[in-house]
Design a protein around this nucleic acid. Sequence first.
DNA 1: CTGTGTTCCTGTTCGC
DNA 2: TGCGAACAGGAACACA
Length: 290
Amino acid sequence: MPELPEVEIVRRGLERVFARGPIARVEQRRHALRFAFPEGFAKRLAGRRVQSLRRRAKYLIADLDDQQALIMHLGMSGSFRVERAAEPSSLHHPLRVDRAHDHVVFHLDGGIRVIYNDPRRFGFMSLALRADLSSHPLFAGLGIEPLGPDMSAAALAAALSGRKAGLKSALLDQRTIAGLGNIYVCEALHRAKLSPLRAAGNLVAATGKPKPALVRLKAAIQEVLRDAIDAGGSSLRNHRQTDGSLGKFQHSFRVYGREGEACAAPGCRGRIVRIVQAGRSTFFCDACQK
DNA sequence: CTGTGTTCCTGTTCGC
DNA sequence: TGCGAACAGGAACACA
């Protein structure tokens, strides 16, 4: 489910909740999600205050007041919702909440609960020392942060140089650029008018400098991510803002899930097609994306 | 090193 | 309406 914009929306919502006070206690209802929880997980969080809640790629990182960091990933179907003692029902949730998949509950003072739900259990939580994060296996190999200070056409050129994989596959690879998923790769490529099938290394000149197409792609990636964040993310099935409201960016998709529809690019008479690359659906317009 | 296929798990949608 | 197949926003891992 969640790609960078959705994780960022969740981060903003949870940041406000955790700022209210320390984690009184944690209910851990399973031994494992995608990976086993670390030893003593719930106990190590009890009484801790979240000093800051950061995002790197699709990871949430909660810096705790004891040098630990809580690392969370939502996988395909993870979501958080916030409930208060006075309103246990989910009136704000347009779709029903399946409590069977509530795996972790963070209890804050005043009856506030932050609940992690994940039907497919591809998400996970872990603990690490904050000082070890940059060398942590989960983070050491991650590529460019698309909305971070190091994002540039030149940085993309360095990451794509010599790569023979299709642009789609290269951009989905978190070691190249970290945070894009299937939706936003498709949408960014359409905005940049680039074919997902084009060899990634082809956007880099022999000198190692970015070709104009790559400059376009860099701008398209940032634009689509910012637009999506501004819209509260994309809600296809699971994604909610932490107050339960839906994201709106799915209404702005130009290619994702629009197989057979007319291309929305001005002056283009093409239709959106769906192909499969590396086992994932790719949506694009083969008339204007070259 | 690079690229691709498989796998984890459950829920929803689609075609017959 | 029922039922199996296909598919779903991620990414670690095995393998050619």
